[in-house]
Amino acid sequence: MDAVAANHATLARLARRFEAQALGSLLQPVFGEGPKGLLSGGAAEAQWRPMLVENYARAWTERGGIGIAASVHRELLRIQSAAGQSPLPASPQPNIDQEGSPA
């Protein structure tokens, strides 16, 4: 893998991580606090709920997400190109596969 492809893969991976974090923040209020009472999971459920939300967000992102990663990736490439660090111009709509490589 040449340096340009490695750079694109790294930026795509960072963009997907950002999308997963953003989705996690958006999903957190949906899960809110669990029900209180006899059938609730108690303290254990409260401890594990953030990890569940994080994994939902990561899984959603790995299956294509909602487009945040593609936009962030495109902007990162544009900024890098403007700084003169990348020999390739940013593509108008990068197609990012699950491994982080532009397809």
Results as ranks from 00 to 15, higher is better:
residue 2 D to L: 02
residue 3 A to E: 03
residue 3 A to W: 00
residue 4 V to P: 01
residue 5 A to R: 07
residue 6 A to G: 07
residue 6 A to H: 05
residue 6 A to I: 01
residue 7 N to Q: 05
residue 7 N to D: 03
residue 8 H to A: 00
residue 8 H to F: 07
residue 9 A to H: 03
residue 9 A to Q: 04
residue 13 R to N: 06
residue 15 A to P: 01
residue 15 A to E: 00
residue 18 F to K: 02
residue 19 E to Y: 03
residue 20 A to Q: 00
residue 21 Q to L: 09
residue 22 A to N: 06
residue 23 L to K: 03
residue 24 G to T: 08
residue 25 S to T: 11
residue 25 S to Y: 07
residue 25 S to K: 14
residue 25 S to F: 14
residue 26 L to G: 09
residue 26 L to W: 10
residue 26 L to N: 06
residue 26 L to D: 11
residue 27 L to N: 02
residue 27 L to D: 04
residue 28 Q to G: 02
residue 30 V to P: 03
residue 31 F to N: 08
residue 31 F to A: 12
residue 35 P to D: 08
residue 35 P to Y: 11
residue 38 L to W: 12
residue 38 L to E: 06
residue 40 S to K: 13
residue 40 S to Q: 14
residue 42 G to H: 07
residue 42 G to D: 12
residue 43 A to Q: 09
residue 43 A to G: 09
residue 44 A to H: 13
residue 44 A to C: 11
residue 45 E to H: 13
residue 45 E to N: 07
residue 45 E to W: 12
residue 46 A to K: 13
residue 51 M to N: 12
residue 51 M to Y: 15
residue 51 M to I: 14
residue 51 M to K: 11
residue 53 V to P: 00
residue 53 V to S: 05
residue 54 E to L: 15
residue 55 N to Q: 15
residue 55 N to Y: 13
residue 56 Y to V: 05
residue 56 Y to G: 02
residue 57 A to F: 09
residue 58 R to M: 13
residue 59 A to D: 14
residue 59 A to T: 15
residue 60 W to M: 10
residue 60 W to E: 01
residue 61 T to I: 06
residue 62 E to T: 07
residue 63 R to M: 14
residue 63 R to V: 08
residue 64 G to H: 11
residue 64 G to M: 12
residue 66 I to R: 11
residue 66 I to H: 09
residue 66 I to P: 00
residue 68 I to D: 00
residue 71 S to F: 06
residue 76 L to C: 02
residue 77 L to S: 01
residue 77 L to Y: 01
residue 78 R to N: 09
residue 79 I to Y: 11
residue 79 I to T: 10
residue 80 Q to H: 08
residue 82 A to K: 08
residue 84 G to R: 04
residue 84 G to I: 00
residue 87 P to I: 04
residue 87 P to V: 07
residue 87 P to N: 08
residue 88 L to Y: 07
residue 89 P to G: 15
residue 89 P to S: 13
residue 90 A to I: 03
residue 90 A to D: 01
residue 90 A to F: 03
